[in-house]
Amino acid sequence: MLEARSLTKYYGALPALRDASFVARPGQILGYLGPNGSGKSTTVRMLVGLMTPTSGDVRWQGRSIFADLPAYRRRLGYVPEEPHLYTHLTAPEYLRLVGGLRDLDEPIMDRRIDRLLDLLGLADDRYSTLSAFSKGMRQKVLIAAALLHDPEIVILDEPFSGLDIGAALMLREVIKGLSAAGRTILMSSHVIDVVEQLCTEVVILADGRVVAHDRVDHLRRLQQDASLEHVFVKLAVHHDVEQSARALIEAVRA
């Protein structure tokens, strides 16, 4: 069980996240929603251990992850929001780097890499450096790197970004499959339809605070709305979207 306890993060005097608490359980897909600047990426980075909270804690199986980060990270698969990769490497080289640093057995690692590249449609590009890859192809490499060691916890930050329809549908099924296999999954995304279809529970952030944490169907019932999108707009979007769009068009024409 992955647990965020009163997570708070300040950048200098600026609060990015305040008192965020939630739990992601094995076999569950927890959706993490929020507008830009609401503190989603900050939360994810703290959950991954890339950043230490100003106060609060992240716990895995009841123990703080910061007590033994390498041990926690051995169980973790992470797809970051930004496709940062070593672009002078080819996809197999990059995956071997990741597998090597995770101490995977080489024959097993090589078999998995070949299989993953085949399944993700990257086999023909195995001799191209990542600098020549499109955004979607890079995203596939990141997904392969996150799943290479069969992690217990999977944290996905905008995993569908740049993916073609086929790959996105496949990833959806992969996430469901991992959940069914008892993995703990947290997914941050702006694609509300996908979150609605995939996630059992959602956490909604606004202005650095958790404004909702519940099952999707329960949230819809509570807010008396037909879709998660409407619930999200009600809770997290504090301006008139149509008016803003009109103002933007006027600004361009002015």
Binding site: H88, T90, E93, R96, P107, Y127, T129, A132
Partner: peptide, 15 residues
């Protein structure tokens, strides 16, 4: 054109 990799033998693992 950068479609072909030239990595100064920076291959990893067994290959």
């Amino acid at each position: 054109d950068t479609s072909t990799a030239t990595t100064m033998g920076l291959s990893f693992g067994s290959s």
